[in-house]
Design a binder for these strands. Structure first.
Length: 611
RNA sequence: GAGCCGGUAGCUCAGUCGGUAGAGCAACGGACUUUUAAUCCGUAGGUCCUGGGUUCGAUCCCCAGCCGGCUCACCA
């Protein structure tokens, strides 16, 4: 389905680009250099309003960059030959004041203009600013660790034999005239690089003048320890791998040598910008990269756990003719060739159970579901759900599986079964506490909710601050009260079990308690993490439940489930006893990475359209 | 959808009891061959979110809007 999405979108984008390009090309004056065109293109791709270039006709030459003028004077002192001197070389100055890129607006970043000028200078000098590849042999953090280990073993203060090639983004630069230090950051961390003019040669060393923070560079050399004791690469060769034209919003990262902790001085903190430009957020905030690495570890851990139990990972339709398996409003779309309405799934449930009917007796799916509802700290319209189904198991069995899965994944993510969520210690330690739904609610209400009439429930709900619930039905009222009175207190992992039937149209009746179902939800830190039941496998009973839902729909409940005849037919073929579980991956990641908002665990969260 | 808070330099923020604005970092020029928030000297940088209104004058006050955050509602 991604293929379909791309197919549908691509022509649109091309069209846009073509038009945008044409318009801008028309607005440009003649004599525009190559670099100018390149940047216009860049702007289109990024689709950003604050472009590096905003073309104006007049002020070129009216206002040559001040610094350049001065530099021009001082470089005439004859102390250094040709283009190899400190500061920006001649061609940069010309570029900055002259053709093409220098048509940059003055209302946007001079930084960007300077970088464009450097780009031109690089090309003029024969440096390829956008390399094709680089043969990386070593990485920052492990190479430093290896070096330290070697030092201890070999007692050599001079082990220059540890050579290699590193590639990464330049995130720090301290020039000292004829030598300079840079910090190179790759996916493993940072390593310092030391450049010396007499090692790199004047030409090679002059490349440093054309580098900026944010550039991707490759260095070749060996490790040594500086006078200050820092393991550092002595660069014997330097390559520019990709020129960064737009300044990254780096903060200053200070490392406390005593505690090893780091403090960020200023930096990229605005939430909106961080979400909209996640690439910059990731580039600049290592902690953000770490959250998403942990997210991957969690998902990988889940897969391994289920695979080891003999579960088979499957893929079921995102585009569904009917939506079901949960109570939520769907996204509606249309298939043109079939001329029919389709819905983006709100759950995987009904398809996965069809697979159990087919004899795939342990299946799971980790995939996006879509719910057309409000956005807040705990809800994103598209979110990742794990569902797994196990034949011949009931909800008791599934509670055990969930306990083991949670403990395993907590260890995979945090290295421990204990975690802190927003200042509260959470022990992910089986067995989890179990509380019957009705008992917990009865304790909070002081009356048995099952025996209370709908009117009484409504009154209770309203006294607890809920409104607009007239005609909502018992199920919704009970759920409302539970969410209001019980849920916030469920901090340590807790299974709430045996939900009223009205709330659970796909769950099997509880043995010996026909008004309840064999269902549990897992709550941690006041949030619902999992929902599971002994699956209702009696097709006749299922039809009755669907009919009840249909009645709710008629009564105006837009979230009541649709009757899925094909699903009933599948049940008629025979669904073995089955336990099923759904786990919200995003919320699980929030818990295990201590993030307060779901947007901080989704790479590109849904936002309003930027102006 | 409602309430509260916010939007000022590339980043983090301060400020103007209404007279078109500042700091630190980043940038640019200069010095410096073991620095590390490098340092020192110098320079430049702003649609004070947008649109109206009040006013001699609005970044500031008022109204409307846009965007974001938090809370509430919704989310079985």
């Amino acid at each position: 389905m991604p293929a379909g999405a791309v197919a549908a979108q691509e022509p649109f984008h091309r069209d846009e680009d073509a038009q945008g390009g044409a318009v801008r090309a028309g607005a440009r004056g003649e004599g525009e250099g190559e670099a100018g065109a390149r940047v216009v293109e860049d702007r289109n791709c990024l689709g950003e309003p604050d472009t590096l270039l905003r073309l104006r006709s007049l002020h070129d030459g009216q206002r040559p960059p001040h610094g350049c003028e001065e530099g021009r004077c001082s470089c005439g002192d004859g102390r250094r030959p040709g283009p190899v001197h400190r500061g920006l070389p001649e061609e940069v100055r010309r570029g900055a004041g002259g053709v093409g890129m220098a048509r940059a607006s003055e209302d946007l970043s001079r930084v960007g203009r300077m970088r464009l000028a450097k780009l031109a200078a690089l090309k003029e000098r024969g440096f390829e600013p956008y390399a094709y590849s680089f043969d990386v042999t070593r990485h920052a953090a492990p190479s430093v660790a290896d070096f330290e280990e070697l030092e201890e073993e070999a007692d050599c203060e001079e082990d220059r034999g540890v050579a290699g090639r590193w590639a990464g983004r330049m995130v720090g630069f301290r020039s000292h005239g004829k030598s300079a230090f840079a910090d190179l950051e790759d996916r493993t961390g940072r390593v310092q690089v030391y450049f010396k003019r007499n090692v790199l040669g004047p030409d090679g060393y002059s490349l440093l003048d054309l580098l900026d923070l944010g550039d991707w560079i490759g260095v070749e050399g060996g490790l040594f320890r500086t006078r200050m004791g820092q393991v550092t690469i002595l660069a014997e060769d330097l390559r520019l791998l990709s020129k960064s034209l737009r300044p990254l919003p780096f903060g200053k990262l200070e490392t406390d040598s005593e505690t090893g902790g780091t403090t960020t001085h200023s930096g990229f903190a605005d939430r909106e910008s961080r979400y909209r430009r996640r690439y910059a957020d990731l580039a600049v905030n290592p902690g953000v990269r770490e959250v998403f690495r942990v997210r991957t570890r969690i998902v990988t851990g889940i897969r391994r756990f289920l695979d080891d139990l003999g579960f088979v990972e499957v893929e079921t339709p995102v585009l569904q003719p009917l939506y079901g398996g949960a109570s939520a409003r769907p996204f509606v779309t249309r298939h043109l060739a079939l001329d029919r309405t389709l819905y983006l799934r709100i759950a995987d449930e009904l398809y996965l159970k069809r697979l159990i009917v087919g004899g795939m007796d342990r299946v799971y799916e980790i995939a996006k579901d879509f719910r057309n509802e409000g956005i807040d700290r705990f809800h994103n319209p598209e979110f990742t759900m794990l569902e797994f189904y196990q034949a011949f198991a009931d909800y008791e069995d599934m509670m055990e599986v969930v306990e083991r899965l949670m403990a395993t994944v907590a260890e995979a993510a945090a290295g421990s079964r204990n975690c802190t969520y927003q200042g509260v210690e959470i022990a992910v330690e089986p067995p989890f506490r179990r509380v019957p739904f009705v008992d917990s609610l009865a304790a909070a209400l002081g009356t048995d909710p099952l025996d209370a009439s709908e009117d009484v429930l409504l009154e209770l709900a309203e006294t607890h601050g809920a409104s607009g619930l007239e005609g909502a039905g018992r199920g919704k009222l009970l759920d409302k009260l539970f969410g209001e009175l019980v849920q916030p207190g469920l901090v340590q992992p807790t299974f709430v079990v045996d939900y009223p039937k009205e709330l659970s149209p796909l769950a099997k009746e509880k043995r010996g308690a026909p008004r309840l179902t064999e269902r549990f939800e897992l709550f941690v830190a006041g949030q619902e993490l999992a929902n599971a039941f002994s699956e209702l496998n009696d097709p006749i009973a299922q039809r009755v439940r669907f009919d009840d839902q249909a009645a709710l729909r008629v009564a105006g409940d837009a979230e009541a489930q649709q009757v899925d005849e094909d699903y009933i037919r599948a049940l008629e073929y025979g669904l073995p006893p089955t336990g099923g579980v759904g786990i919200g991956i995003d919320r699980l990641v929030m818990l295990l990475t201590d993030q307060a908002s779901i947007r901080d665990v989704i790479l590109f969260p849904t936002l309003r359209e930027a102006e």
